[in-house]
């Protein structure tokens, strides 16, 4: 009953918003090149599906490639940080500097140095990398200190401590990082593609938006935007579900409260 309401209520509100939008466009007779109605966007999605879906695949592929690279790099660096505080001190400022510099500002530079597809991938990687690194590093350092003592008491090797204690303890933090990183990788890819603009030979969704803008094809811009949102939501839901499956048996974040 409660669960039904949890899904029904936001769906109803969303539907009402769409209907309101549809009504206003119809009532005020707003032309589609100013503001297309939801029905018009849906129709464009249908007619331009071939082009748009192809672009969606390109963008999603870049996102996942970037995310995968960010996971490998972030976890590797976090493990290195966990080995010695000195290494962490030496390298963390770089990671922070990369994180706080807006990706929009770095993208044009990368586009000069790298081929446009590599530049897009690098941008997506850069934004996804930091949350995964910092979360994993935090997780590795946050193992219960009594358990660390217990491992010392039984003279466990560093390796055993890593595999049986630090990695499992870091898993919830890591998954949180991946969930944030997944969304950010998509944003990074889009931003870089927009920065590449017509110079890019790319055919991702952001390129479609830029292209449609030049052609004043506003309904298609909205259609591409819708696909980006849906892709972002699906990526988030995928990692939320993955995290739930992996942590269900033991972690409080995945606990369903009783009563």
């Amino acid at each position: 009953m409660n669960r039904l309401l949890e899904i029904a209520l936001p769906s109803a509100v969303f539907l009402c918003a769409l209907l309101g939008w549809e009504f206003i466009v119809w009532w005020e007779a707003i032309p589609p090149y100013v503001l297309p109605a939801p029905s018009r966007i849906l129709y464009t999605l249908y007619t331009d599906w071939g082009t748009l879906f192809g672009s969606l695949l390109v963008t999603v592929r870049i996102t996942f490639e970037a995310l995968f690279t960010a996971i490998v790099g972030g976890v590797a660096l976090a493990l290195l940080f966990a080995q010695s505080r000195l290494v962490e001190r030496a390298f963390f400022p770089f990671a922070v500097a990369l994180q706080v510099t807006p990706i929009v500002a770095i993208a044009p530079l990368l586009l000069i140095y790298l081929s446009s597809s590599t530049a897009v991938l690098t941008c997506a990687f850069l934004v996804a990398f930091f949350p995964i690194l910092s979360n994993t590093a935090l997780g590795l350092a946050s193992a219960d200190h009594n358990l660390v003592d217990l491992f010392e008491l039984y003279r466990a090797s560093k390796w055993q401590q890593l595999i049986w204690l630090r990695l499992p303890a870091a898993l919830p933090y890591f998954l949180g990082g991946v969930r944030i990183g997944g969304g950010l990788a998509l944003i990074g890819a889009i931003v870089a593609e927009i920065a590449a603009g017509s110079a890019g030979a790319g055919s991702g969704l952001a390129f479609r938006i830029v292209e449609s803008g030049f052609l004043l094809n506003i309904p298609r811009m909205f259609a591409a935007l819708t696909l980006i949102s849906v892709a972002g939501i699906l990526i988030y839901l995928f990692f939320a579900a993955l995290s739930n499956v992996l942590l269900r048996r033991w972690h409080d974040s995945a606990r369903s409260r009783e009563g």
Binding site: D144, N146, L150, F151, Y154, R155, Q160, W164, P168, H251
Partner: peptide, 22 residues
Amino acid sequence: FQEPTLMPWSSVFNNVYLPLRV
């Protein structure tokens, strides 16, 4: 310890097995 200090990601069996496993 004062707290149970168990590994929450491991079953009871694996928690007790830990010292032998090490």
